[in-house]
Amino acid sequence: MKSLAAITFIGFFCVIWTNIPFPFPVPEGFPSPIYKFQNNPRTREGFELGRKLFYDGLLSKDGNFPCSSCHQQFAAFATYEHRLSHGFNDQFSFRNAPGLFNLAWKKELDWDGGINHIEVQPLAPLLDPHEMAEDLNHVISKMKKDKTYPVLFNRVFGSPGISSQRILKALAQFTASLVSADSRYDKMKRGEVHFNQYELKGYEIFQQKCSRCHQEPLFTDFSYRNTGLEVDSTLKDFGRMRITGRKEDSIKFQVPSLRNVFLTYPYAHDGRFVTISEVLEHYNSGVVQGPTLDSGLRKGISISSDDRFYLIYFLETLTDSSFIKNPLYADPAMGVRNEAPAHLH
């Protein structure tokens, strides 16, 4: 009886130890998130395990392509300076790697919205022969042989065992926690700073010409649109149609957030634009007509060179430098990096 009490007592502390609550702060003015960590209660240990997994090459076939090889913190978790990312055997990914932040607000992920839940998202790069080129059972067996993973999984989930479900839930604790809401724009909204006249003018133009699709505060309305980009003849990417099989969805892509847009170049689903100016010039003069083109873009969006000047001022206010320097999101083994490391290919 005494030992039972002792076990209960110890058990009680174990529960407390493994369940340090780690509340998910919803930034002021943001809507309620889609992913609320339901069935995956957010804990500090769970988050830390997810972070370790995100930065660990063990998840890839040859050890060289952890999630972080394509999603780099200093680039707001996009792939720095790459049109397409590369993975296993120097093969290219099919699309441009987007920045990773505010994912808890996304109902559907990827440029074509083909992924229906943040928890299952890592399966796509993990199993893609061009990316991490792994097999789930093999990843699990590697982790089981590792010194630390069995202990960490036990601590986070309260019982021994490593399974795909646990790996995916831990990763989601990390990816869904990546929140970017502390840019100059956010500070202006909170009344902490004032925009200068260029930024203000840019903001006005943005609201007139862009926010229909790049809706505040997340800078996307999550809809799928054809913005008049010609289909690349080698990639043959028809976007949303690949998922729904419907002609009406041909060449439509999910509106990307423009937060941190200065850090996530190159731009568009295939990284065809190197600079924001090029993107703006596309809206101004490059829109290609087609049956699924967004009806508001038939004549393009006229952007004078003055407009462009101001718009760029405004877009720069969306850079969240505390996000890319947040040690909580950095490689647990390395800490924050402020720029591209020299060896980066």
């Binding site: 069935n39 995956n40 990827d110 083909g114 992924i115 229906n116 839940h117 943040i118 928890e119 299952v120 399966l123 796509a124 993990l126 199993l127 893609d128 789930l136 059972n137 699990i140 399974s163 795909s164 479900q165 995916l168 839930k169 989601a172 690949r242 998922i243």
Partner: peptide, 23 residues
């Protein structure tokens, strides 16, 4: 189909899950 990471018969390690078009 929309419950995220699942286990048992629905464990994606069973090879019955499309990753690029979840389902």
């Amino acid at each position: 189909q929309n419950r995220g990471a699942q286990s048992g018969a629905l464990d994606p390690a069973k090879g019955m899950f499309w990753t690029w078009n979840s389902g």
